[in-house]
Amino acid sequence: MSGKTLLCRCEDVTLDEVEHAIAKGHTDIESVKRFTGFATGWCQGKQCLIACARVIEDKTGAFPLAPITPRPPVHPMPLGMLAGLANVVSTERVTHHERGAVRKPNVGNGEGESQ
């Protein structure tokens, strides 16, 4: 019988694969994520993040100080439901918070600036 422990069920990443990535020098959690593909599937890491972080601790001696960047969304969202959002999401608040907002094309305050 095969003895597989699946750390990431969504992308079929085994314990062996995570260990292999670490052995290849991908020792920080963001790099392990990219090399193995854990946390990039349906659940986006809800099930596997801790399991992988613990393997990193076991192999490198240090538990990661921070997780992978939590990126939206936490649950999959149908495009059709988002399509009408433009009508209710105002851009006004964004510009308010981010006063430096720029429009492209825009040139910095560089010397050779010309347009």
Binding site: T69, P72, M77, P78, G80, L82, A83, L85, A86
Partner: peptide, 30 residues
């Protein structure tokens, strides 16, 4: 950082171009 303005604009443009994408789900934005 990610923005909701992006999601709104992208979804609208994509669903208009490929209507059957309407029930396809976004998994990750960055």
């Amino acid at each position: 950082r990610s923005s909701v303005q992006f999601l709104a604009t992208y979804a609208q443009a994509l669903v208009r171009t490929v209507p059957s994408m309407a029930s396809v789900k976004v998994l990750r934005q960055w």
